[in-house]
Simulated scan of single mutants.
Amino acid sequence: MRAFEGEPAAIGGRGKDPVNTAMIRHWCEAMGDGHPAYTGPEAVAPPTMLQAWTMGGLSGHGDGTGRATRYDELLGLLDGAGYTSVVATDCEQEYLRPLRPGDEITFDAVIESVSPRKTTKLGTGHFVTTRMDVRADGERAGTHRFRILKYAPARRPAAPAPAEPPTGTATPAPGPDGTASSAPTTAPRPRRPRPVTNRDNEGFWEGVARHRLLIQRCTRCTTLRFPWLPGCNACGSREWDTVESAGEGTVFSYVVMHHPPFPAFDPPYAVALVELAEGVRMISGVTGVRPEEVRIGMPVRLEFQRVDEDLELPVFRGSVS
C-alpha cells in the first residue's frame, strides 16, 4: 500500500460554482458567524470554507474532472482486505490568500500517506491522508489535508452463557402454569456520554454545577456568544466576562430522534435549538411535553436535570398552550 503514496487522488478538479455570496451567506448563517468581513462589496469567504468550493455534491463532478484515480483503487484494495468501514478522523487547512466572490476554483489532490496497520478502539485498519491543493484563478489559495481510518470493526465479546446453578442450590418453585418462576433480572442502564470539557468551556460547566447558565460576553464590543469560544467572533478580542441567562427562551428549531438508538437514551425524544431571551442559541433536550408536541416558537424554561450521580445537564421544559 505504500506504493500509493504520492499517487494522485484527483487531477484537474474544478469547483462546480465560483466563489459566491449566496454560499457564503448560507455558511455564515449555519455557523452563526456575523463577522463583517464576509458581507458587503469587499467581502471575502470564511477561510474554513476552503473545502466547500471543491465539493461535487450528491451528483459529483459530472464532467469527470476531479474524479478519483488511484485513490479509488486504494480504497478498493482496503475493502477487499476486510477494512470495509470508514470514519473521518481529522483535517488540517492552510490559508495562503483570501477567496473572493467570482474566484474560479481548481484543485489537485494526492495520496500523501498510508499508515501501517493500526489497532484502535473502533477496530484495526489503516489511516489514509490526502492533501488537496486549492487554487483561485490559477493562484494557490490554500491546502486541505483530510485523514480517514479504513478499518475492520472490532468484534464485540460474546455474551457469557448463563451459569449452571451450583449443586445443592434450591430450584425455584413452579409457578401457577407449572413453569419455574424467578425474579426478573435487568441489565444496568448504560451511563450517558460525558460532555467534553476543556480550558475554553470549563467555566460554562462550573456554572452548570451551580445551576447557572452562563453566556460569554466580549468586554470590548459587548457581543454575547454561545457556545463558549476563546475569542470574539465579532471583533476578535480575547477578553471576555459572563452574564447569567434568565432561562427564558423559545424553540427556534428541533428534531425528534427515533433512530438510530443510542445507549442510555430512550427514543423518541426531542432535541431543540433554543433561542434564549438574551439572543444566543443553544442545543438541548426538551422535557415536560411529548416529543410530538414540540413546535417552533414554543416557549421553554431552563431547568437542570440530574442524569446520574455525577452528571447534571441544562435542559428546557416546554409548555403547551
Rank of each mutant, 00 (worst) to 15 (best):
Ala152Glu: 09
Ala163Met: 05
Asn201Arg: 04
Gly207Asn: 07
Pro184Met: 02
Ala154Tyr: 06
Gly203Cys: 10
Tyr151His: 07
Ala187Arg: 03
Arg192Asp: 00
Thr186Asn: 12
Ala159Trp: 09
Pro193Cys: 04
Ala158Tyr: 01
Thr185Gln: 13
Pro195Thr: 05
Ala161Asp: 08
Pro162Leu: 02
Ala141Met: 00
Thr169Phe: 04
Gly207Val: 00
Ala187Lys: 05
Pro160His: 04
Asn201Cys: 08
Pro190Lys: 06
Ile148Tyr: 14
Glu164Gly: 07
Arg192Cys: 03
Gly142Cys: 05
Pro176Tyr: 14
Ala141Lys: 04
Thr171Leu: 08
Asp200Ile: 14
Gly207Gln: 05
Asp200Trp: 14
Pro166Gly: 12
Glu202Met: 13
Pro195Ile: 10
Pro157Cys: 08
Arg155Gly: 12
Pro190Gln: 06
Pro176His: 11
Thr167Lys: 05
Thr197Tyr: 12
Thr186Asp: 11
Ala183Ser: 11
Asn201Val: 04
Ala163Lys: 13
Asn201Gly: 06
Pro172Val: 04
Pro190Phe: 01
Ala163Ile: 06
Phe146Ala: 09
Pro165Glu: 08
Ser182Lys: 11
Thr171His: 07
Pro166Phe: 01
Thr171Gly: 00
Phe146Glu: 12
His144Cys: 13
Gly168Glu: 03
Thr171Asp: 07
Ala180Ser: 10
Pro162Val: 01
Ala170Ser: 11
Thr169Gly: 01
Arg156Phe: 08
Arg156Val: 12
His144Gln: 10
Ala158Glu: 14
Leu149Gly: 04
Leu149Arg: 05
Gly207Lys: 04
Tyr151Asn: 01
Pro166Met: 09
Gly203Asn: 11
Thr186Arg: 14
Pro176Trp: 14
Pro193His: 07
Thr171Lys: 10
Pro162Gln: 04
Pro190Met: 06
Thr169Cys: 07
Thr179Pro: 05
Ala180Val: 11
Val196Phe: 13
Pro172Arg: 03
Arg192Gln: 09
Thr197Asp: 12
Pro195Trp: 13
Gly142Lys: 02
Arg199Val: 14
Phe204Lys: 04
Gly203Arg: 14
Ala161Met: 10
Val196Arg: 14
Ala161Asn: 10
Gly168Phe: 04
Gly175His: 07
Thr197Ala: 06
Gly142Val: 01
Ala163His: 10
Glu202Gly: 07
Arg156Asn: 10
Gly207Tyr: 03
Arg194Trp: 05
Arg155Val: 11
Ala154His: 02
Arg145Cys: 09
Thr143Phe: 01
Thr171Glu: 08
Glu206Thr: 13
Pro153Tyr: 08
Pro160Ile: 00
Pro188Thr: 01
Glu206Asp: 15
Gly203Leu: 11
Thr179Val: 10
Phe146Gln: 13
Phe146Leu: 14
Pro190His: 02
Ala159Val: 09
Ala180Glu: 13
Gly207Ile: 00
Ala159Gln: 11
Ala183Pro: 03
Thr143Asn: 12
Ala158Pro: 08
Phe146Lys: 13
Arg145Ile: 07
Ser182Leu: 13
Gly207Leu: 04
Ala141Arg: 00
Ala152Gly: 09
Leu149Tyr: 02
Arg155Tyr: 09
Arg145Ala: 03
